[in-house]
């Protein structure tokens, strides 16, 4: 039986005889690394192009098909000190990338046009009414029109199409006043130029488009980046499955290449990456990631296995089923769909603002026109003044107010170990006042740990650790990890289902079941005091030691729970595990509110109950059984070790062993929301100053341009303050 990594799933045909591969790379931090990698890979003669993307930490490779094996590249990168994992750009991410490219192109066109038109406008502003001849002014206006009209027709398309879509759905969004403003400003300017008037607003219109596109691009870029990080995360986990092809061949393949109906092998210590049914084999399985329960079950032929299940003792052969077939999964799926639907009713801050904003602006413009008509102005002058009102109120600062803060805040979140899944996560995280924690894998670390390590002598512990390296059993693996063992002992054999044994310096040693090592007494004593623990015994000659292995609370959990309390958040534990385990964890953390043996349906019911009381719930959980609750809660966070389903519905994912990112996420989001509100008020304040001037008919293109760039700059600078939050955490 041979086993090799299969790259074929990731290879793409880039041209005749050209192959393309994308790799996610761990450890790139600077431009120097980038040059080093590109140079080193280009030295391989068949490679035609090697490009590193520093922001996404990715490498795109192209080479002539035939001789070179892709694993050569991975090896070469390993020599340089970088771990590389093949990955596939998800469909959703490819769409985001394309959108963000298109926006950047439009932004470029608008910005260049704006610069050139500004250059033409400055002489008009400074020359108007003094030494400029009317013919020259007209000439400059026509030139501006020549640049602006095609540029605007191209770069303002996103606004026009979005406004059109909103109007067709009988709604109003921010793009409706924007589109009306731009169209009217251009139309009026053209008319005024043709009739040799003093003022034309081409410069204001194109500058407006450029600023708004900048806001749009920031927003889109944030979305693209979160997608890219999520994609890298999936690749860095390097999830592979051992596919059983036939008697003589098994193959290690990426999970994405596994199809329903395939047979995969699960060996002891392995976590299943697929759903399916056991065909043959018998093993203890740990389903804590799925149900929250920490006690192991027995799987035999016919048992259902879900992705995330840890195989503990024996090997299993599993036939992969489509994701929705299992009873538990279809139940979860149904709950999820309901929950996601109810969440989509949430209105973002930007949407709420624009609902209020569009009618106010349009009514103001209309009233201005009517007012001037009543006051006896000509129809032409009244319309011009009304349009000036529309131009000056166009939500330039408003369009930047929220995306600018979001971009800065998501950067701050990322550097403290929190990745955002959704764009409005910041707003929702900032509003929460009640936190529901799952226990298993969320408050506790997902990996097992030795609980009585302090009472074991260092020599015995070290020996147990080195012995444990020869076993694949998860409990043994926990002992090896806790003892920080590096060097396995030689001549160790495994007794299936019992443990490992061998000889050290002429003394017989065994590590395994207490009954097999003659340590039942000690084991029973530990089980009595700590029913949650799994036990493993070491016999060394006549001495005997029993290790209690169990899930441990995250190291900073107590502090963070206290910190959340100080931030005014109520905390509750809600777990699918049995009562004693949940009670013990809650007591250790000083949490008075807890519920045990909760089903996914009950978790949602609890969230509904809390929201009826007016609480905004933050759900923190990792298991498959938490997924519906994660989707139903006002906001949700998952650890990076969570199941795929949970991670996909959570608003944010946090990295590392610490619980601190949860508190940090709430804190940064609160500051960010405050800055967003401040920015909105700044924009309103600007309008309060500018609109009376516009209504009075005193706005010149110069004032419009200065007001727009001034307010945009103010909002951007205010957004940058979100970077300072990090220091206070």
């Amino acid at each position: 039986m041979g086993s090799s990594i299969d790259f074929s799933h990731y290879l793409k045909q880039a041209g005749p005889d050209l192959l393309h591969l994308d790799l996610a790379i761990e450890g790139i931090s600077c431009a120097g690394c980038m040059a080093k990698i590109e140079r080193s890979l280009s030295e391989i003669p068949q490679v035609t192009s090697a490009r590193v993307n520093l922001t996404d930490r990715r490498l795109a490779l192209e080479w002539k098909a035939g001789v070179v094996d892709p694993s050569l590249f991975v090896d070469r990168l390993a020599e340089l000190g970088y771990k590389a994992y093949p990955f596939e750009i998800a469909g959703a991410e490819a769409v985001e990338v394309e959108r963000s490219r298109a926006l950047l192109r439009r932004l470029g066109v608008a910005a260049f046009a704006a610069m050139n038109v500004m250059m033409l406008s400055v002489p008009v502003w400074s020359g108007n009414g003094s030494d400029m001849l009317p013919e020259q002014r007209d000439f400059f206006h026509w030139l501006s029109a020549l640049i602006v009209l095609p540029a605007a027709a191209y770069s303002a398309q996103p606004f026009f199409s979005s406004a059109y879509a909103a109007l067709r759905a009988r709604g109003v969004n921010m793009d409706v006043p924007i589109s009306v403003g731009i169209a009217l400003a251009l139309g009026m300017s053209l008319f005024e130029t043709a009739s040799h008037a003093d003022h034309a607003y081409f410069d204001a219109a194109i500058m407006l488009i450029a600023f708004l596109l900048a806001g749009r691009y920031l927003d889109q870029n944030m979305r693209r980046r979160t997608r890219a990080f999520a994609g890298n995360l999936a690749a860095l986990k390097a999830e592979t499955a051992t596919k059983y092809v036939n008697e003589d061949e098994i193959r290690t393949v990426p999970v994405a290449a596994i199809r329903p109906g395939d047979i995969v092998l699960l060996r002891p210590g392995e976590r299943s990456a697929v759903d399916g049914n056991v065909i043959s084999g018998r093993s203890e399985i740990d389903q804590s990631l799925i149900t929250g329960e920490t006690l192991p079950h027995i799987a035999v032929a016919g048992s259902a296995i879900y992705a995330g299940t840890l195989v503990r003792s024996g090997a299993l052969r599993v036939r992969v089923s489509a994701a929705s077939e299992g009873t538990l999964l279809s139940e979860i799926q149904r709950l999820l769909e309901n929950a996601v639907q109810s969440r989509s009713r949430y209105l973002r801050l930007a949407e709420r603002t624009s609902r209020l904003y569009a009618p106010v602006v349009h009514v103001t413009a209309l009233l201005t026109m009517i007012g001037w008509l009543v006051a006896g102005a000509t129809v032409h002058d009244s319309i011009i003044t009304a349009i000036a009102v529309l131009i000056i109120t166009c939500p330039c600062a408003l369009g930047l107010a929220i995306p600018a803060v979001q971009t800065v805040a998501s950067g701050a979140l990322f550097s403290s170990g929190v990745l955002l899944n959704t764009g409005d996560a910041i707003e929702r995280l900032a509003e929460v006042d009640y936190v529901l924690f799952d226990k298993t894998g969320t408050l506790t670390l997902p990996e097992l740990d030795v609980a009585n390590a302090a009472s074991v002598s260092p020599e015995i512990f070290e020996m147990a650790g080195r012995l444990a390296l020869s076993s694949r059993h998860p409990v043994a693996a926990a002992v090896a990890r806790a003892a920080r063992a590096k060097a396995p002992l030689s001549g160790i054999e495994e007794e299936p289902g019992q443990g490992v044994f061998g000889e050290v310096d002429g003394v017989k040693v065994r590590l395994g079941r207490p009954s097999w090592c003659g340590a039942e007494e000690a084991a029973r004593a530990i089980m009595a005091s700590d029913p949650e623990a799994s036990v493993v015994a070491l016999r060394h000659g006549d001495t005997c030691q029993v290790f209690a292995v169990r899930q441990r609370l995250r190291p900073d959990a107590t502090n963070i729970i206290a910190a959340l309390g100080r931030m005014g958040l109520a905390v509750e534990v809600i777990s699918g595990d049995r009562e004693p385990a949940v009670r013990a964890a809650a007591r250790a953390l000083g949490i008075t509110q807890w519920r045990a043996e909760v089903t996914p349906v009950d978790k949602i019911a609890r969230i509904d109950e809390l929201s009826r009381q007016g609480r905004k719930v933050l759900m923190v959980g990792d298991g498959l059984n938490d997924a519906p609750a994660l989707a139903a809660a006002h906001a949700s966070i998952s650890p990076v070790t969570a199941t795929h389903v949970s991670q996909a519905v959570a608003d944010a994912v946090f990295l590392g062993d610490q619980l601190a990112p949860v508190a940090t996420a709430v804190r940064i989001s609160r500051t960010a929301l405050r800055l967003m509100r401040q920015n909105l008020w700044l924009a309103v304040f600007y309008n309060v100053l500018a609109v009376p001037v516009a209504i009075a008919g005193l706005v010149t293109p110069l004032i419009a341009a200065a007001a727009m760039s001034g307010s945009s700059l103010l909002v951007m600078l205010n957004a940058l303050r979100a970077r300072q939050i990090r220091r206070h955490v």
């Binding site: 192109r105 470029g108 260049f112 050139n116 250059m119 020259q136 030139l143």
Partner: peptide, 30 residues
């Protein structure tokens, strides 16, 4: 003022050149 006849097209050409360079770099995957 006749100098404008040269300067204006020159300025616009330079602007357009910048734009073309920007789009070119975008297309080449930077």
């Amino acid at each position: 003022m006749e100098v404008l006849v040269f300067l204006v097209p020159l300025a616009i050409t330079l602007g357009a050149l910048g734009l073309v360079a920007f789009l070119w770099s975008l297309r080449n995957g930077q």
